[in-house]
Design a protein around this nucleic acid. Structure first.
Lengths: 142, 142
DNA sequence: TCATATTCCTATTTATTTGGTTGGTTTATA
DNA sequence: TATAAACCAACCAAATAAATAGGAATATGA
């Protein structure tokens, strides 16, 4: 039951983009250095966000990446769904449950409930909430 | 972010034990057949519950397994912790967080919060709650 | 114009975890 | 004393995660 490096790195790099957003594009290289993540690996992670138009990319010298939306318009759940595929802890509580034991399974509702609390929690946070200085006097949400 | 078959099978077999508990011991074979799980694999899963004295085992002919405690005294969280090792979705929110980036990491609190909601949810359910006929008029919790 | 800096693309590699299987030994009972 | 049960220690195969490699396309600015 873990969130993979892909998801964690994705979040970190989107926060990095949000915090360093000026009117320029930020080269992957810079973010990889700041976040101490391999450039090539990060590249493969960021790809899907470009495709989903959460991030805008510009090629060539002077190019780089920037967020296409405001940080508060990007939810943590959305980010993790794109990297992890699903956030459901078990297949039977996911988008298309399929298990021939479901009918007399005692645990289906348990998993669906777990799914629900995870969904509620993760959808309640945006990239903005994770940026330095956000919320409640701490640097972090509490 | 998934609960492995080990955890799911463990829950199912403990529920099976609870539902079929008379004054006799239940052979692994019977439960494996009812739950459609390989005997040998189930054996390797059940081992830890015997060790932790959640289940009592009796060897030899006429032997088998039974719960050592009442179903309401066994929480779902406890069961899953024993099979999954940890329920923390990321290492930095687990029992012994260790990441040299923690100090200026923006996501630590997010993961700790997620950990917390999962903990609260899973610790609120016992094996009893998952048995057929438990709670609220449905066969399942809702 | 052309070296340089960037993203984009496809494939390959390596490590780890998951989900088992094999082949027994030991223990108790009817 | 045959049989049915739990116990034990390896081993294995497939899938997934976590990168790495090597370049092609594209834009800039010196």
């Amino acid at each position: 039951m873990t969130i993979s490096t892909r998801g964690r790195y994705a979040l970190r790099v989107l926060i990095d983009m949000a915090e360093n957003q000026r009117d320029v594009y930020i080269p992957l290289k810079d973010m990889a250095a700041r976040q101490e993540i391999s450039e090539k690996y990060l590249e493969s992670i960021i790809k899907v966000f470009v495709k989903e138009q959460i991030v805008t990319a510009v090629r060539g010298k002077g190019g780089g990446y920037r967020l296409s939306r405001q940080p508060e318009e990007i939810s943590v759940e959305e980010v993790l769904l794109l990297t992890e595929g699903t956030l459901s802890p078990v297949a039977c509580a996911g988008a298309s449950p399929s298990c021939r034991r479901m009918e007399d399974c005692r645990t289906t509702a348990l998993w669906q409930g777990l799914n629900q609390v995870i969904h509620e929690y993760l959808s309640s946070y945006s990239i903005r909430d994770l940026m330095a200085g956000a919320g409640c006097g701490y640097d972090y949400i509490i």
